[in-house]
Structure formats: C-alpha cells, structure tokens
Simulated assay, not measured.
Amino acid sequence: MEIVILPDAAEVGRVAASVIADVVARKPDGVIGLATGSSPLAIYEELSRRADAGELNFSRTRGFALDEYVGLPFDHPESYHAVIDRTVTRPLGLDPALVSVPDGLADDIPAACAAYEAAIAAAGGIDVQILGIGANGHIGFNEPTSSLSSRTRIKTLTPKTRADNARFFDSAEAVPTHCVTQGLGTILDAKRLVLVAQGSGKAEAVAAAVEGPLSASCPASVLQLHEHATVIVDEAAASRLHNADYYRYTWANKPEWQKY
C-alpha cells in the first residue's frame, strides 16, 4: 500500500486526479469506479478542468458507481444516479450510456445486484476505483462487520452514516435506511484502488485502515490485501498515522519512472 500525505485538500484532489488521468491516457476505453460524497469532488473538478483544456477525453470511458440508496427516485437530487450525472458524467464529458449506477428501485434487489456484478465483469473489470472513507471506516456503503469477500448487495446503513449524510438531505430522517453497494470483494477485484480523505474527522479511520489490523470492524482495512492501493490524504487526515514521516520520505524519493 502506498500512502501519500499532502499539504491540503486541493493537492489531494490534484494528485489523485493525475492517477486517474494516467489510466485514461493509457486506456481511453478503460473503466473507472466512481465514488460519491464530498471526498472525491476535488478529483472530478480537476479531471473536468483537464477535459475542458483538451488534455483528456472521456468519451469512450466507462463508469460504474459504487453504490445507490434503496427507494430513492432516480430524479431525486441526492440519488446517486443524479449525483453522478451532476458531478461526474456531464462535467467530464462521459457518455451517459456508458455510466452505470446500481438499481435501488428494482423489484428484485438480489437479481439487480447480480446483474451489476455481471455488467462489471462484461466490461472487463474496473481499471481504477476511486474511494472515499467514512468516519467509521466504511468504503462504498460497506459498514463495519461487512464480509471482506462480499459482493454487490443490499446493506442497512448505520445511524452514524445516516447522520453524516443528513447534510445532503432536509433532515436525518429523510436519509434512506438501506442502500445497494459494491462489496469489499468486488472492490478488491479492481486493478487499481485510489482512496482519498481530507480533514481531521477522517484521521482515526485512515489510521485504522492503513496501520490497524485487517478487520471487518474497519472495512477500509481490506485495502491492505490489494497489490496496488494508493491512499492520498491531507495533513489533517494523516494526523493519527504513526509512520507518517516514512510515508512522506517514500513519496519525496519515489523514482520518476514509478509515478503514477
């Protein structure tokens, strides 16, 4: 696992965007795993800037969202169908037909989950998966005690996650209680993982994921099993890391041929 500690959130977004841009430049028809929430927004803003400048072309790139609320209409502004369209698909110039989001309105949720897994496999798998991390260590909506080998499925959101997401809704009660999420096993299948975190509120979760034991109690710790996972954080989110000086040293001395 590579840990990159940067001065601020803007730099986190820029460096993470460079990882995604490198994948797209090498494979224009590649597949990106798309996360929602506040953490990856700086990535999408930087990628949009590069697309507008003609540095990148996303017209052939496929996208698969990590998750979706159950029971929220697709046209609800906080459904991830709407959020992905608003923050990723349109700004980056992706073809909407090539962007998929789990179906939280399906009559048969297990069948819809199986179909989503099949669609990812049919696309050749995810080349680079963007991830954020919840304060309780969740990635996607894989809450603590999620199976480390889990696949796309329905999950019950914890009260903590619902409270954290209440800022996007009129009230905490308006946040759905369930979601459909890619599983931890699904996430591990991606060829490259890029997790970003900003702010002191994520410091404990980042430390548990990076330096704690591999445990379902911190779902993000599953990144320790991946052969090519990069964790990019600002100083505040890195404040609980015991080996922070070593991570800064390895980044400062990374061979030029090895970047990104």
Rank of each mutant, 00 (worst) to 15 (best):
I5S: 05
P7E: 07
S18L: 14
V19Q: 09
V19C: 12
V19W: 09
I20T: 09
I20F: 12
I20C: 12
A21T: 06
V24P: 03
V24H: 06
K27R: 15
K27W: 07
P28H: 06
G30T: 05
G30L: 08
G30S: 04
I32M: 03
I32G: 01
L34K: 05
T36E: 02
T36Q: 03
G37I: 08
P40C: 02
P40D: 03
L41I: 11
A42K: 13
E45T: 13
E45P: 04
E45R: 15
E45K: 14
E46T: 13
R50W: 11
A53T: 07
G54E: 02
E55M: 04
L56Y: 06
F58Q: 05
R60K: 15
R62G: 10
A65Q: 06
L66S: 00
V70C: 12
V70M: 08
G71S: 07
G71T: 05
G71R: 07
L72W: 01
L72S: 09
P73H: 07
S79I: 03
I84P: 00
I84N: 03
T87H: 13
T89V: 14
P91V: 01
P91D: 08
L98H: 14
S100H: 15
S100A: 15
V101L: 10
P102T: 08
D103C: 10
D103Q: 10
G104Y: 02
L105Q: 14
D107G: 12
D107P: 06
I109G: 01
I109V: 15
A111W: 09
A115K: 14
E117L: 04
A123Q: 03
G124R: 09
G124M: 08
D127V: 00
D127F: 10
Q129M: 14
Q129C: 11
G132E: 05
G134R: 02
A135Q: 14
H138R: 04
I139T: 11
I139F: 03
F141M: 06
F141C: 11
N142V: 10
P144G: 05
T145I: 01
L148N: 06
S150G: 09
T152A: 14
K155Q: 09
K155M: 10
K155D: 07
P159Q: 09
K160W: 07
R162W: 04
D164I: 08
A166L: 08
R167F: 06
R167S: 00
F168H: 11
F169T: 08
E173K: 12
T177W: 04
T177Q: 15
V180K: 00
T181R: 02
L184I: 11
G185N: 01
A190F: 01
R192G: 04
L193G: 06
V194N: 07
A197Q: 04
G199F: 02
S200R: 13
V206T: 05
A207T: 00
A209W: 00
V210D: 09
A216S: 15
A216D: 10
A216Q: 07
A216N: 10
C218W: 08
L223V: 11
H226S: 03
T230M: 12
V231G: 00
E235M: 01
A236S: 11
A236E: 12
A237Q: 00
S239H: 07
H242L: 13
A244W: 04
Y247N: 05
Y247G: 02
Y247S: 06
W251A: 15
E256H: 12
W257T: 15
Y260K: 12
Y260I: 14
